[in-house]
Design a protein around this nucleic acid. Structure first.
Lengths: 332, 332
DNA sequence: GTGAAAGCGCTAACAC
DNA sequence: GTGTTAGCGCTTTCAC
């Protein structure tokens, strides 16, 4: 039914080897043969079957990216960076969304184990360090955005602790002393690190940490609103809030607005990630930006480097973040 | 290096056929053999090479989804719906972002032509009807969200014309007579249809269409702001604006806000798509929602149905949209 | 410069 | 219930 290399060879009156050579641009094909083969390929509408090719070559030139969520505009930018770089090197990027479900993530990682792809990048994972190390022994994997403690796996991310520090420091520099934190209840490493950075910044500035200024909940928007409501119910209210994600920050801002506060004046709010919405929001949202494109390019570069060699680079690379001040934060 | 079915067979002391039977759950394997094979598989950490399997079976059970952009939260929800449904049927979904670039999209479609995937769903495409028809003759493709006029290809989308009508009608029902439109300059069919629906709604209500109330530009946020600025520079200003996308609506709202207007009172703004941001925005954004999950499920169901048969269903399916009124629109 | 042939890992027909 | 074997479509060695 579908046309194969054999059909092309027969029609062109050459051997399959010659067709293959033309296909792969190998040397030692006469111009006449090459021309003839190419014409036949076009005439027959032939497209090589990559299952055959990849099986034979034992490589697919495809890299899988697994995202924990599809709602995060950050991931789109990262993947865009990956794709551009990968294409240049003759690789393709495909992606899949795990929804942070171990079952789905495992199913997707099967594409790596069953040789459908050459490598995988995880933008957050539910696998343990031990599981990751086990996988990394036999397969090429990398983490991006979100490291896993104890995992000896190639990782590219910002320094979340320092980024959390810088975010809190920016609020302190604006004159704030009563700074609250909206964080999440989960074991996600990056959030914990951002939280640690916040604590260190307060300590450095000689500000005492108050339990009632620290809120833990889910990643959902609702949590940002609840946190803001809680802070505003306190007798001694904070003047600034640092949320470990922009979504939580936006929800907190919305709640403050509904409560009649002017965000940026009555209360300052700082987010994290610099998602698309930050600039559009009313007020625009101050945040910490990650170098998404660069992270995508870099992790792909390193991963592809690993594909060839037995000496895999499994280092942890930190890329530079940047604090961006917009309307949602103001001097006190 | 990597362990194959042969290794398992040798270690277990059975033939590769028996291992294959266990792998595929075919009948006619004694319990003893099955147990032995499974133990050996676990012991050796064997994972079947799908390149071999797929080559032999001439199917991959993988469907590719191509998105024009990665920034559209709609797509994430659609793909989520696809994935859930596909997994139930033993299929996997992978996705790729074309950035509306023909070169990239073509490169991604190669995965279909070279048999790396069984079918492809395009959430918007830069291919012409003719090109699509040509592809559909030999391959399994479907369009979702965004139809192409003249393409006899399986398509699942909302009725954009009616949706545009309903959006404008909702504004009319709120008492508005001076209703402007923010649309895009491109040939994207869905936008033109929404625009046509807007025109029909005005006609039905006996409202004359004014050229200076219709703005065409790019998809970028900037365009929404420019449009609002233009409308507000008119002597006879509109009291409501319908934007054919939520992003444009948000940008228009932001601009109106900056200009000192209270959106929802001084000016009403209606978007389209019901992206995540709509609910969080200040004010929350009225919009038209598409049944994303359902669309994803449905298109996958139909596409998988097509995989088996020579009689392909290439109909155009319309799913129900819904107008959602929030704070950004008000009664005049 | 070109062709014959082996073989990548797997499934499935066929034989027993 | 199990094994033997052909062959999916391709690349690549080896011989000429």
């Amino acid at each position: 039914m579908s046309v194969t290399i054999k059909d092309v060879a027969r029609e062109a009156g050459v051997s399959v080897a010659t067709v293959s050579r033309v296909l792969n641009g190998s040397a030692n094909v006469s111009e006449a043969s090459a021309k003839l083969v190419n014409e036949t390929i076009n005439r027959l509408g032939y497209s090589p079957n990559f299952l055959g090719r990849n099986l034979r070559k034992r490589e697919t030139n495809v890299i899988l990216v697994i995202m924990p969520s599809s709602e995060h505009s950050l991931y789109g930018t990262i993947i865009s960076g990956m794709q551009e770089y990968a294409n240049k090197l003759g690789y393709d990027i495909i992606s899949a969304v795990s929804n942070s479900t171990t079952y789905v993530e495992t199913r997707q990682m099967d594409m790596l184990f069953n040789r459908t792809v050459d490598g995988a990048v995880l933008l957050g994972t539910s696998f343990s360090a031990q599981e990751l190390n086990e996988m990394a022994r036999n397969y090429n994997i990398a983490l991006c955005c979100e490291g896993v403690e104890g995992a000896d796996v190639l990782t590219v991310a910002v320094n979340d602790e320092q980024a959390g520090y810088d975010a809190a420091k920016a609020l302190i520099d604006l004159g704030h002393r009563k700074i609250a934190l909206i964080s999440v209840d989960s074991s996600v490493v990056s959030s914990r690190k951002r939280e640690n950075g916040y604590l260190r910044a307060l300590a450095d500035a000689g500000i005492e940490v108050r339990e009632d200024y620290i809120w833990h909940g889910s990643y959902l928007a609702h949590n940002g609103a609840d946190a803001m409501e809680h802070f505003m119910s306190l007798d001694d209210k904070p003047t600034a809030v640092f949320a470990i994600s922009d979504l939580l920050a936006a929800a907190a801002i919305k709640k403050a607005h509904v409560m009649g506060l002017t965000v940026g004046k009555d209360i300052s709010v700082m987010g994290f990630d610099n998602i698309t919405m930050c600039e559009m929001f009313i007020p625009s949202i101050s945040t910490v930006s990650q170098p998404c494109r660069k992270m995508g390019e870099f992790v792909i570069k390193k991963l592809i480097d690993n594909l060839g060699t037995p000496h895999k680079d499994n280092r942890y690379y930190n890329l530079e973040h940047e604090v961006i001040l917009r309307e949602s934060t103001g001097r006190i």
